[in-house]
Write a protein that binds this DNA or RNA. Structure first.
Lengths: 214, 214, 214, 214
DNA sequence: AATGAATGAGAGTTCATTCAT
DNA sequence: AATGAATGAACTCTCATTCAT
């Protein structure tokens, strides 16, 4: 049993993904939810606050997943986590990245939070990559190479859907193709130890077959 | 001395990059240009036609550059072309990719043309990559790997600005960083022959120093 | 104390009669009423919905009057009802018929409702005429003659104002002349019994003198 | 080989019938004709002048037909002329009557000419009817009855299409039905001599079968 | 918490008309 | 005669937001 505020968020996410945040009016949201516009504005000061609330929810989930990684236990699975765990979240909040630039232009507060958040993400990805290097799963690299591996990862992870969405309207299929974008992007950086690991082959097979739920 | 139609296109591009196509009204365009809205609509049936005209201009330039590549002369420079020649064009028309997903949702005709165009681009990039493999500059790869190299290239090329724009407002700097994204993305696929080639080092140095005009 | 929605309808009717529905903008309506355009569109999805609401109001009144006819009591007065009762309604909603053809072309939903409504009206007029025939007030006629009596009645009733409006701007006078159009149109179909009836003479005198309120 | 001015008139008539005069822009007309708007305005001061020119053409044809009636030769055929000769003209210029009231409201000059013209028409119809009475084809009637017979004729002739257009989109069929409206309207006023005349039966049969070209 | 009426700016677009060429 | 670029007012309609209840 969710509160009205939560319902507004969920409905907004659905509509933003469907038609885009900029194409979705507050009236659309309240109509779809079956509440009054006034009530929506009782819970949120304005549209940007809805967007920011959504983004904060997104951040929380992403960080919860990232922080739940057990760095000690089983190092190769870090890759699997990196690849699979976030897929569902990224689908649910896909408009955030698909529409990112207009959101940054249109909503200044959102831009500030996004910037701050990206910096944190960069640190975490770096930590992850360094950990993988330490355990011999990832080839060593210079600081500079590392920086561009990080940014490229982010770009590929956040924007692969842009590519597939042009070619097809099948969201699930596109997301599964996108997971292979990430996999094949990271592959050249893996060590022979990684490539020989049975678990990596399992991941590759899983992704290639697309035999998993989203 | 450019025609009104051309001026509308140029002004639209400027405003679309600045505020986003969806945030720019036809009245903004005509006001900035100092003409009446009526005159704008005399030259273009509607806003989508302006967008499409811009996109067609973009395509023409991209294809002109691509078709001017001399495949015989000097194979390594294909990479340089791939990296540098399009940068200016991509800056000028950056809103096309930064705002892509909302444009696809909002303008159905544009989507059709974009889809068609992307399919052509894919073929051309494949041809380029195969040519590089043939001459020993790129490592051989499977059909599948090739497909994801192509899609990842496209994603990195078109969306690297998304990343840097969050962190800084300096467009030129961001574009130059983005060029390194492309370079470092492609590097793991290069053969030793490429890596040993002096011209590649020159490219890398050029990009790292950012000592080139845009 | 009427609601805003009702006021919009009343103001629209006034303006539509005055300047024509097609010559009346939604801003005219809201300006005359002293509300914002936004408010008008809060109450009505679009202009066609205003038109349809007006038409439905019109239908309701027409049918209420028609259904209030007591077929048992006094048959000759059916004619009087047919002639007089609807006059006020037809004045109030006169643009509906004066402007009919453009409304049908311009508003497809309106056309559908109008078609449906006309078919109902035809049935009711037929019933009325048959009742008059049964009681010997109207000459018997073939099915075919009946059909064209019905259509001609409708045409005369709905369009007589078209004629008089060309010749004079005095609406009330024109409407009263129009009532005689209906009367003289129907007269040749009346039986001797009708013509001998004092009440018919009364009606004729009333209409000729125009000594009644509208 | 018609002049540009004539072509503008013909094209305007087509478009006015199709979409309504008020829904047809000068741009529509010049586009359909393949000339420039400027050229259209070279030939006509404004839209109203086009309308008036059309109306004058219409008047000329109507009067030419009316004046060609040979009152001596064969009196019963006056009815046929009244019924059939004008049908083609009325189809061609149907928007003039279908859209009449808005035209009167929107174009003051047109209204003046229309008023003047209607008065002339009334005189001519009266003359025709009196001639028919004189020869025993039409029942004698009072001045008053005559006036309303005239106005009702005009209403039925000009507005019967309004009725049928609601029920069907088949123009030719509707016009043919409309001809029966006129016929059945006039029938009660005919003398036994008319009704016994074989030529009248021929007309009725012709109209009922609809076996004639338009 | 919630309603829903109201605002007013601004969106995309069309229009009759003008005018230099 | 004819072109077609240009105007600017007006059109229908949508938007984020406010506020009395």
């Amino acid at each position: 049993m969710s509160t009205t505020k939560e319902k507004i968020i969920e409905t907004s996410i659905e509509l933003f993904n469907e038609k885009g945040c900029l194409n979705t009016s507050t009236r659309h949201i309240s109509d779809k939810l079956g509440i009054s516009v006034g009530n929506l504005y009782y819970h949120f000061k304005n549209k940007e606050e809805i967007l920011i609330e959504i983004f904060i929810n997104y951040i929380k989930i992403v960080f919860r997943e990232i922080n739940s990684i057990n760095y000690e236990e089983d190092e190769i699975f870090l890759l699997k986590d990196f690849l699979l765990n976030n897929l569902k979240t990224d689908i649910k909040y896909r408009f955030l990245h698909l529409e990112l630039n207009l959101l940054l232009i249109s909503f200044p507060k959102f831009k500030d939070i996004m910037e701050e958040q990206l910096k944190k993400e960069i640190q975490i990805i770096k930590k992850l990559l360094n950990h993988q290097i330490l355990h011999g799963y990832l080839k060593p690299m210079s600081e500079n190479e590392m920086n561009f591996l990080v940014s490229n990862s982010w770009i590929i992870v956040r924007h692969n859907l842009s590519y597939w969405n042009i070619l097809s309207n099948d969201l699930i299929l596109n997301v599964k193709k996108g997971s292979l974008n990430i996999y094949y992007f990271i592959k050249p950086y893996l060590t022979q130890k990684s490539l020989d690991d049975k678990r990596l082959k399992d991941i590759e097979n899983l992704l290639l077959k697309g035999d998993y739920d989203l």
